[in-house]
Design a protein around this nucleic acid. Sequence first.
DNA 1: GCAGTAAGTCAACAGTTGATGACATCGCTC
DNA 2: GAGCGATGTCATCAACTGTTGACTTACTGC
Lengths: 193, 193
Amino acid sequence: MTAEGTAPPRRARDADASRKALLDAAAALFDARGYGGATVREIGERAGLDAALIARYFGSKEGLYLAVLADEERAAERGPLEPDLAALAERLLTRWDGAEAPLRRALASPAPTPPERAQLRRIVRRLTDPAKEAIGGGEDAALRAELLVALLVGVSVSRANGTLAKLAGASRAQVLRQLAPLLEALEGGEGSR
Amino acid sequence: MTAEGTAPPRRARDADASRKALLDAAAALFDARGYGGATVREIGERAGLDAALIARYFGSKEGLYLAVLADEERAAERGPLEPDLAALAERLLTRWDGAEAPLRRALASPAPTPPERAQLRRIVRRLTDPAKEAIGGGEDAALRAELLVALLVGVSVSRANGTLAKLAGASRAQVLRQLAPLLEALEGGEGSR
DNA sequence: GCAGTAAGTCAACAGTTGATGACATCGCTC
DNA sequence: GAGCGATGTCATCAACTGTTGACTTACTGC
């Protein structure tokens, strides 16, 4: 009854808990299906609530999506400042690999709306700014920090969707091992040639 | 009238040309919107034809999608054998960057069906096998070749969707320059440390 | 214990979607 | 030129989607 992915048991009425349940259900389904593939009925069912509460509490499905992204933004702001690219990679992979991770799905989504895109850019800036400074700051460093994010998005979504067979089948330790020289190259930049 | 993205002018009836028009329109829209975001009406309109022809010629929307992926598979098979990771990166970036590229979108899609996933795996194998051999063959080499694909998927989709600001704003030459040390690291493997 | 309100549900709606089959039209062959 | 079949269109359908508002029920405070 309380198994992973099924609706939670009935509980006393609690709007905050209901909002949280909808956010959690939405995060999982937006990650697994993408924004368009996740329906409000499925989100409601997974949360153990009626889908009408989505419009009630968040204004709309889009409002719920932006709230899920706002949660990711808060987590990025509350998290530690990652001092270098290796720490950032570790953090993102830990957060994204084998988990319900709406952020990596959103970063790979096909046609973000302007508010979505703005929010995602803010989150990425928050995540990458400290590590960017550690490799010298400036435009090149920002580009390399973002290359790391792009790499991890690619790794993460393809491990989740199974399209790259070896990557999907590898252990996280293996993936980290193979990523290590890439991280060094990113930390060194084109001068490392 | 024949501007990019709008329906082509009326022409004499030609089933092959119509099939091609639908495939082209679908490729563009599956890339831009993802599979779920592209509607049969929009595909039909873009092809200058009625959407009913999708079911007629391809059986269903899903059948059209698999046909688009089959085109990508044929292109991979007919293309040259890329001798190393650098050549593969050049080829994929040329094919994917600033273009209508259903393959990169498909490789990042949230929930591929088993036939979709099988097809994508075949395409990736075809693309990576030669370059994999150039870095020694074996499981580690395969993993590294796939890491390159994951990286380029991440770079390509984020440049298209604009979620990573610096990467989206950089010229292709800049991106290639920053990728160069990553490619070297992938060619060297973890032994390059 | 009762009243009032907040929380949750249910039914319905308008619009959209992929698919189907009837119909129209074009083009080729005789 | 006529006939036939292939090609393309149009109208329609069932199912689905996000949203809305009426209704129900639970909970809190007096």
